[in-house]
Design a binder for these strands. Structure first.
Length: 259
DNA sequence: ATGTCCTTACCTTAAGGA
């Protein structure tokens, strides 16, 4: 089962680049972030024609997540538990029926800038809610994958220029600490488990020639429950997508699970 | 380097978010 995550920065703007990557990469399951679309406006037919079931959790203008899957999906749920007043569309779950059933959580973690401030408070509260949800799913002792745009640079080696991020919500100690708490639950950062060296990124800002200078950061992650980690056979970042026509500022990252 | 891109609304131009 090839399972990917991709922050597309607007489904309308990526209506050519996303199908092109799907056709080339052939993932079984894709979690999308920042679809920036309400459910009714999502161009589902484009992806159904490529063989994908489409489940969206959108909102107007901002945020919005979706799951595309060539394998059957069951028990789709929308929204991160823990705050009924939260109206931001940043979380979707589904069970993928492959040779084994895998619970997939697609997430778009709040950016949190400027920090300190209410946006940073929201980020940290959201991460605490995610920790609680992860704890509940881990108790099932089944394969679970938490994938998406975490808006967290886990360590300095995950940024080309870590000095540029020291006061940013993506790299502040509280953000990194909350990310480490997820790992401490028993989750595995799939990419870091297979690639120990520095210099692998999933995001390059549109500004200031970040791509041309390879001034990137690694903020898109797939965290695996122990039962999913046991099935991990491969994981890669599709960096070349950033050099394509009309690219997102993020690129896809994926895992292969033996199931 | 105040450097770009996407979306929406106040819609041929600016603002908010990232």
């Amino acid at each position: 089962m090839k399972l990917a995550t991709f922050n597309i920065n607007g489904i309308k703007a990526r209506i050519e680049a996303l199908p092109a990557w799907l056709t080339a990469a052939q993932p079984d399951v894709v979690c999308l972030q920042e679809i920036k679309s309400v459910d009714d406006a999502f161009p589902r037919e484009t992806f159904e024609a490529l063989g994908y079931q489409v489940e969206t959790h959108g909102q107007k203008s901002f945020n919005g997540v979706a799951i595309l899957s060539k394998l059957p999906l069951e028990d789709v749920t929308r929204g991160l538990p823990g705050d009924d007043s939260d109206e931001q569309a940043r979380w979707i779950e589904a069970t993928v029926i492959g040779r084994r059933a895998v619970r997939v959580c697609g997430l778009y973690l709040p950016n949190g800038n400027p920090a300190p401030g209410p946006k940073y408070d929201y980020k940290l509260a959201w991460m605490a809610r995610m920790e609680a949800r992860a704890r509940a799913l881990l108790a099932l002792e089944e394969p679970v994958v938490f994938c998406g745009d975490y808006n967290v640079i886990p360590q300095d080696e995950d940024a080309a220029k870590p000095d540029q991020w020291t006061t940013d919500a993506l790299a502040l100690p509280q953000s990194r600490s909350a990310f480490r708490r997820l790992l401490a639950l028993g989750l595995t950062d799939a990419f870091r488990a297979r690639h120990s060296e520095a210099g692998h990124y999933t995001f390059w800002d549109y500004q200031a020639g970040a791509w041309e200078r390879n001034n990137g950061i690694r903020i898109d992650h797939l965290l695996l429950s122990p039962q999913a980690a046991d099935l991990l056979t491969n994981t890669q970042i599709d960096k070349q997508v950033r050099a394509g026509d009309k690219p997102s500022d993020h690129v896809p990252i994926w895992v292969d699970l033996d199931c």
